[in-house]
Design a protein around this nucleic acid. Structure first.
Lengths: 267, 267
DNA sequence: ACGCTTCGGAGAACAGTGTTCTCTAGATGG
DNA sequence: CCATCTAGAGAACACTGTTCTCCGAAGCGT
């Protein structure tokens, strides 16, 4: 603002103490992320954030109305610079998988971030464009409306839940002992091996596949399962469209059933 | 224990004040659930639980080592008296759907219980039988090992995540206003209707299907999607088994690709 | 360059949290 | 009846989120 005015004589003196960087929501969120990464969600407190900034606690409240709002601002960072590609009907499965992987990657970007994400409001202006493009992707893929409308929510819920449980396990590993991840895995493998074979034959048989996730395989598999489930609805819709009017023996439309057109006279 | 001994003279006097019911983990968990239902997760504190029991806070710590342990005990109640039926290959889809619905019903049984469930340890002795039967169900259904081993985790994660978000929304409804659920729905419908049509055409088009869950339809749909995804792996495995050795043109195995048979030499 | 207003940060305070300590009163074993 | 032991009481500690008052420095008009 004062940059455009001619400099007054005493201007220089007043510019001499810019040592104090102005406090902003942006800087507060930065500091909060620093504390989060270092201390974890449980110890993320307004006082810790203030200390991180070298500032009084009360100073935070002039830029951030509450801790909940701070958490909300941290949540919104998840979506910064995250734009989904234009939907491509031929590659929608890949695109959904890419979306899921990117989401998990971002949630893994900061310790316990999944705990914060889980409680975030999904209807904020920053998130809506994401939802819009995701929904458009599902529509382009040929999913019926009611499936397309729910699909984004379903896969997002799963990504959050997966990352959340991962974060829980990681904290448990940190807390109980200083066990490394391989040690933790070995320990759990032994746990499954030591189960009474008469009571837990299946858990023992699949022990290798029951181990907690330390790579992306299980996540990718889960996403693939969801995508296949979605795809089955797309195929079903395509078949129904092809045989419209004269219902032939569609072998696998057992679960679908007729769908009410939700037209209401008030929108 | 002392019932079997002959009564001593001062026995009567000592029996005269049984007014004090002995404190047990069981009673503490009961009281904690009472507080949870009345006040919600955020206000569930050891002091509130103690007050509910008419007891000092420190008294709780002789029966429960920490608040975390109390939460863990509350979590374990989820599984009390919950036994899965014997797996039936012909009805495995229904059985999985029933399991999911029962889980959601139990999570809905107490306010914010999903928040507690999300952080619960899934490897406790009380939960393992559940897992065992679930895994056996997936194996009987014909899922390949690596899918069967992950399926239980996947669907459980989703159930928890779904209930968690539901609980978040419910708390938000409670907090912001005293809006009834229909009012909340109407409000959100209006929100979607008021979106700029050029930027959010798909969200607006599917507004009716984007509304937050207030019935079980969306949950059932999500479970159906996951089950269909699982089923596709079962079908794939069946086909592979049938045409083993001479790979014929399997029409619908576009996304699957060749699958490594995860046989390891140590089980 | 002066005075005035404005406002962001500081510090103390309040009510509440989980947990631990000491101590007493009442039930238990001899 | 007495000694013992322990479950519960109460106070205390180190925290938490939030709000209050107050001060000092920056910004304005003159």
């Amino acid at each position: 603002m004062s940059d455009e005015l001619p400099a007054l004589p005493w201007d220089r003196a007043r510019r001499r103490t810019p040592a104090r960087i102005p406090l902003t929501p942006e800087r507060i969120v930065d500091a909060a992320y620093t504390v989060l990464d270092r201390e974890g969600y449980e110890k993320l407190s307004m006082r810790q954030v203030a200390t991180e900034l070298g500032v009084a606690v009360s100073a935070l409240y002039t830029h951030v109305s509450s801790k909940d709002e701070l958490l909300e601002l941290m949540y919104l960072r998840l979506f910064r610079g995250w734009t989904l590609p234009d939907p491509d009907p031929a590659r929608w499965r890949e695109q959904v998988a890419d979306f899921a992987r990117e989401g998990l990657k971002r949630l893994r970007g900061h310790r316990d971030l999944a705990r914060i994400s889980m409680t975030g409001v999904p209807f904020s202006p920053e998130v809506l464009p994401q939802m819009e493009r995701l929904v458009s992707l599902f529509r382009v893929a040929g999913l019926p409306d009611r499936v397309a409308g729910a699909a984004g929510d379903i896969i997002s819920t799963f990504i959050d839940g997966f990352a959340f449980e991962e974060s829980m396990l990681e904290n448990r590993r940190r807390g109980s002992d200083g066990l490394s991840w391989p040690d933790m895995r070995a320990h759990l493998r032994q746990f499954f091996a030591d189960l009474p074979p008469d009571r837990f034959p299946n858990l023992i048989a699949l022990a290798d596949h029951m181990l907690p996730r330390d790579e992306d395989d299980r996540f990718d598999l889960a996403v693939e399962i969801i995508i296949r489930g979605l795809a089955s609805f797309a195929e079903e819709a395509a078949e129904n469209a092809a045989t419209a009017g004269h219902p032939g023996p569609t072998a696998r439309s057992a679960a679908g059933g007729p769908e009410e057109t939700g037209e209401r006279g008030e929108g």
